[in-house]
Computed example of a mutant assay.
Amino acid sequence: MPILRVIDLDRRKPESCYLQDARRDVTSQFGEDGIIEKIFEIVPPANRWCVEYGAWDGVYLSNTYHLVHDLGWNGVLIEGDPAKFAELETNCAGLANAHPVQAVVGFDNGVDALDDVLAGTDCPHAPDLASIDVDGADYFLWQSMKAYRPRVVVIEFNPTVPNDVVFVQDRDLAVHQGASLAAMVELGKRKRYELVAVTNCNAFFVDEPLFPAFGIEDNSIDAMRANVTGRIFHGYDGTIYTKMRPLQWVGRGDTRPPIDVFQLLPPEERNWHDKLESQQTDSADGEDDD
């Protein structure tokens, strides 16, 4: 049996990812609450408004609950699922600074984009924070924001994709595949945002003029995040090998695909080209002898 293992690559620089030291959860999942607090220690809030799309019930894994419920920020909390929106309203009852909105946000400006939803609220055009977490089309929702420009953006990315892979799912809210961190960074650059922190599946971006305040000289992906393992390669003879983690979020136990699943060539066709050439030469020599 061949030997196959993947060496984890961790090129993070402590001085680049120091914001992760502030991680703590009130209702967030991977320490986002603490990082948000630290960010606004470095760049104080301008208006104390936040937006969360994919607010769910306003509590579970929320990146804005602490701001709205504990720190008194105004929050536009957008949720499309009717049952979860009912829970959101209940959890925000009596809070004048909480502004629940039931809406399924799309990508077409002038119709149903985030800009259009926010236009129906009192949210300023440069809210301090926007959190986008819809388990799929997050990339396109941020891309669609033009009239509104949050000072800080927290957005979910697909954590299974290696640092050097740009992946963006189809532009479809019904698809739940996500986008890679590299794709989010490219989008951020085009929108003039800079990466300042990364958790397991959330990236934190700040408006470009705010970035110098963080003193981060290298905010490249490898300096901010350890690369994930997962490789596919092939031998000289065409045999495909794979080393992957179990599939996440599908609820089926260990779903690491067996090597046989990836074979493009049947065993009899997996031959090293030099061996084939040698066989052809031997065959030709045999014919000459006849």
Rank of each mutant, 00 (worst) to 15 (best):
T281M: 12
G110R: 05
A183G: 04
T239I: 09
P257W: 05
V250N: 13
D25L: 04
G110N: 08
H69A: 15
E32N: 06
N109Q: 15
E156N: 00
V59S: 05
D135S: 09
L77D: 08
L247F: 12
G72N: 06
D122Q: 06
R252Q: 15
D207S: 14
V59Q: 10
T64K: 08
N47Q: 11
V196Q: 02
D170W: 02
W272G: 06
Q279A: 15
F157C: 07
P82V: 02
L276M: 12
I240D: 02
M145F: 03
I42W: 03
R256G: 01
R171L: 13
L114Y: 09
M224N: 02
R149K: 11
D274P: 01
I259S: 09
L265A: 09
F85W: 08
D128F: 00
P44C: 06
Q279F: 10
D33C: 10
P82M: 02
R245L: 14
D172Q: 04
G253L: 07
G94R: 04
F204H: 00
F85M: 01
Y53P: 00
D218P: 05
Y148V: 03
L195F: 08
K13F: 08
G136Q: 03
A22H: 14
A98N: 06
W73N: 08
Y60G: 09
E52G: 02
T160F: 11
E89S: 08
K243P: 01
C92F: 06
G178L: 09
V104E: 10
F233Q: 02
D218V: 00
Q20S: 15
D8A: 14
V185D: 01
R252V: 10
L129A: 02
Q29Y: 04
T239W: 11
P267A: 13
P267C: 12
V161T: 13
D25P: 01
P212M: 08
V6K: 11
V152H: 03
L71K: 15
Q169N: 00
L4D: 15
A103L: 03
I221L: 11
D285K: 15
V101C: 03
